[in-house]
């Protein structure tokens, strides 16, 4: 057989009944497009992000307009979600409150996951003193409880008169500074389970560079757990922001956020439950959307679940 013929046979076998060759990414995109959970969560996230960027699209009411004569009114035709103790329209407050939570959640997750994954892979793959160094530094930051560290950080850099975005990014910095070690450890243990596999040894024996082995063999096979935890964390970070507000050192009035609204409402749990219900509902729905998205993406990208 001539060389030409071999090439042709190889080509014709490409178009065999198995179907066209698709990369892992293309396969994953197809799987995602077929998953209703993905579309539901993506739609919800789209709405919440739109709410964060452009709140006046959803309501004409000014969230800072206090109608004291109608304070603590139950939901009615005029104020759909009722009014809070200051007579603010809760519907408007909830719409405008999306921004702070979305910003904190998304940016903290982005920072912690990137740092965590990069350090975790480096430590597990290169081993030796690199592993020891990264693991010890991780241990140092990891040993400081997240909430305590965030409280200390926010107290060390108090923000009474700072502009909105500075306050939000202080919260992001406080949580990110102590949030990454959890993901580093998780990624490290996950990569360590992948490394002894034959396909990694084979790639190494074939002379693949470390970067290539990490990119095409280690990452796809070890990313599952970190995606699940990162998406769950996104919700946890949003809740943590609310917790810091609850303790009086996160976002503070006049900043409008779900956390602040929940904290205002929690004392009136018995008499005005609607004040607590609506901000909590929106907070929970946002968290829910991100977790569902994470699950859908994991199912699509993990070759093992197919």
């Amino acid at each position: 057989m001539t060389e030409q013929a071999i090439v042709e046979t190889a080509h014709s076998s490409d178009a065999n009944p198995v179907g066209e060759a698709r990369s892992l990414g293309a396969d994953a995109r197809r799987a995602l497009a077929r998953n209703p959970l993905f579309w539901i969560s993506a739609t919800m996230i789209f709405i919440f992000v739109l709410m964060a960027i452009w709140p006046s699209l959803f309501t004409n009411t000014d969230p800072t307009e206090a109608v004291l004569s109608q304070a603590r009114e139950r939901p009615n035709s005029e104020a759909w979600f009722g009014r809070d103790i200051q007579g603010y329209d809760i519907y408007a407050r909830v719409i405008y409150g999306a921004r702070a939570s979305i910003l904190v959640g998304v940016f903290t997750t982005l920072f912690t996951t990137t740092i965590g994954a990069a350090l975790g892979i480096t430590a597990a793959y290169f081993g030796g003193w690199t592993d020891s160094l990264i693991s010890r530094v991780t241990d140092i930051f990891f040993a400081i409880p997240l909430l305590l560290g965030a409280i200390l950080f926010m107290s060390a850099f108090p923000s009474s008169n700072d502009p909105y975005f500075v306050v939000v990014f202080k919260v992001v910095a406080a949580i990110s500074l102590l949030g990454w070690p959890a993901l580093t450890r998780l990624m490290r243990s996950s990569v360590m389970q992948v490394l002894p596999n034959d396909y990694v040894q084979a790639a190494r024996a074939l002379g693949a560079s470390p970067w290539r082995i990490i990119r095409s063999h280690v990452i796809p096979n070890s990313l599952g757990p970190i995606i699940v935890v990162a998406t769950i964390n996104l919700g946890a970070y949003i809740a943590l922001e609310a917790t810091l507000s609850f303790l009086g050192i996160g976002l503070q009035p006049p900043v409008i956020s779900w956390g602040v609204s929940i904290n205002d409402a929690i004392v009136g749990l018995r008499t005005t439950p609607h004040m607590l219900f609506f901000p909590s509902l929106f907070l929970s729905l946002t968290v829910l959307a991100f977790i569902m998205l994470g699950d859908a993406v994991r199912d699509a990208y993990d070759p093992k679940t197919r």
């Binding site: 919700g235 809740a239 917790t243 907070l283 929970s284 946002t286 977790i291």
Partner: peptide, 11 residues
Amino acid sequence: TLVVISIPIFV
């Protein structure tokens, strides 16, 4: 579990 995760602990 989703419901539990999504509600803040103080609520």
